[in-house]
Design a protein around this nucleic acid. Structure first.
Lengths: 334, 334
DNA sequence: TTGTATGCGTTATCAG
DNA sequence: CTGATAACGCATACAA
């Protein structure tokens, strides 16, 4: 690595002259600047970022902590984050919590000691169920945090949330009022998460308002839920609509319904939570409540950058990114 | 942030005493150690990683540059990388090249100036087609690089590759010999990538050895290739097997074949390239050549860590991770 | 056993 | 216009 010192020695000037020349300071004469920049280019000098970071106590790096990258929703959010950060010359350190509280804590502990200027996080399942929030509280004293999707209300930080309640409420009402469905099943495998609860609440409200009966199939953390779905469908032949509150069980329900000889959407309307590529993976194309992962990522990153670049301690914001209802071939378009 | 200096002042000892005490040096007396560690814990002292990095000129951070995270294969690889790095107390900075040469170069330029100890990369499409490799050559002089999947033969570095040729050759032969298929279509949308070429070559070899006729549908970079697939299938009713060399066009072909009234796998066997979750997304479950993304990630990370931790300049290795043939319900099991 | 001095590479302040 | 000096926080060779 070529350093300022080496350039200085070769040019018989001082280190500070070189430094100023390279940052095009008005203090330095044109001819010196030329000599310096020429040699710097020739030797391909690049300032050492670690040294700059130590000096400025800013890293231009953001820590991103997500439960998983295999979940397309999170992958999409991370993509949105990276795009926004990149256009502001920030990098990101990605940690995967694997839904584990301990891994999440380790990531925060490690990165909060100077490695990053701020955090963007979707809290792990275990963190949410055990409600252990010390690592967030500790860090947030010195370092801004933005939470998205999986959010903890009692941590003081900015948040980007999804209109989980409303989107499922609207969807369920759509099924009831526009499609005249009466036996609507909700399938859940994330009922222990706050977002899961909101979604179930939205469904319940719509069903009860219409005087219908709620039917909820909770799959818990079952690794292969397909048999459970199949059995339920087999024993409830009168179902005429299914709402899945995650991205994969909807597809499973679709496939199982077809196996049972159901016509879709004539016999059963099916909708799931989705993401950009959801349309490719089922036939007929499943309807989705599109969570706009990319936008959520962009918004989270912008929110964080705002906090990082404002001198005065900025007030925490909570922004809602509305999901988009994409009615494809598994719901009657009316 | 509490620093060594502050601890030293509070304890009326020197900075170096504190430093040594905290690293449990044998030079320091037990009682002093106790006093120091107690106060350090009380004030929640954590060494500033940036300062440590500057001192040691090691960051314990790896730069990971991938074309996309929305492609489940890359997401899986990154997950494997993160797992391995994490268990060795390394972090990773993830950059997404978006298949763009320029973005890839920027990432390498930025991170190679002290920010990371090494790189793991799958080269961008544009980099491969334009064959611009200067940024790799420059960096590799000072910083180890491991390439995976998308590999450049003329860059001197370690590589983790997939047995693309062999896996498609074997699959095609399976269709021919065990299932007695005669009209086998290969669908490609990555023919300009080295891995795409290998896969097509494997197919071609098997077909020609059997005295059959090759049929290759090249989709290029078409954004919505489904109509192209549909038309091809409609005009070639005699197809009895399809090999897709990426993870999504196989699913599309499956769905289009069903639309055309084909029974699967009786009329047509279908196989695609896949990843861990592929089995969930189609009905019947599509057969896949499973690329073992997680293992590729693990292997890449291990290879890099080896280079980073060996004093002597280690010889570059190339490791092949073999794909696994998962015959599900879209291929006759014999 | 503890402390002093130096350096990692950069930037900023101040003096010449 | 240029240069010397100090500082960011830590670690270590060397003194005491």
């Amino acid at each position: 690595m070529v350093t300022l010192k080496e350039l200085a020695k070769l040019l018989n000037v001082s280190v500070s002259t070189v430094s100023k020349a390279l940052s095009d300071s008005s203090e330095i004469g044109e001819s010196t600047k030329r000599r310096v920049t020429e040699l710097a280019n020739e030797l391909n000098y690049k300032p050492n970022r670690i040294a700059q970071q130590l000096k400025s106590s800013k890293t231009k790096v953001v820590g991103v902590v997500v439960p998983s990258l295999m979940n397309p929703f999170f992958a999409e959010v991370v993509h949105g984050i990276e795009t926004t950060l990149g256009s502001h010359n920030y990098d990101m350190t990605v940690c995967i919590s694997n839904e584990s509280l301990e891994k999440e804590q380790r990531s925060f502990d490690l990165l909060s000691t100077g490695s990053v200027d701020g955090f963007i996080v979707a809290v792990a399942r275990e963190t949410q169920t055990k409600h252990n929030i010390k690592h967030f509280e500790n860090v947030s004293r010195t370092t801004p945090i933005v939470m998205f999707d999986r959010v903890l209300n009692d941590v003081a930080c900015s948040k980007v949330i999804v209109n989980d309640y409303q989107s499922v409420y609207d969807t369920t009402r759509y099924f009831i009022e526009r499609e005249n469905r009466k036996n609507i099943l909700l399938i859940s495998n994330i009922e222990e998460l706050s977002v899961g609860k909101y979604r179930i609440d939205g469904y319940t409200k719509a069903i009860e308002e219409a005087g219908l009966k709620t039917k909820v199939l909770k799959l818990g953390r079952e690794l292969n839920p397909r048999p459970l779905i199949f059995d339920y469908l087999k024993e409830n032949k009168d179902l005429d609509a299914i709402v899945s509150i995650d991205h994969i069980t909807g597809i499973m329900a679709l496939n199982k319904a077809k196996l049972l000889g159901k016509n879709i959407p004539e016999d059963i309307s099916i909708i799931g939570f989705g993401y950009a590529d959801s349309k490719y993976v089922s036939s007929p194309n499943i309807s989705v409540i599109n969570q706009k992962g990319f936008e959520i990522g962009e918004t989270s990153a912008k929110l964080l950058l705002e906090e990082l670049n404002s001198k005065s301690r900025v007030k925490h914001k909570t922004i809602m990114v509305k999901s988009q209802l994409n009615l494809n071939d598994t719901s009657k378009k009316v």
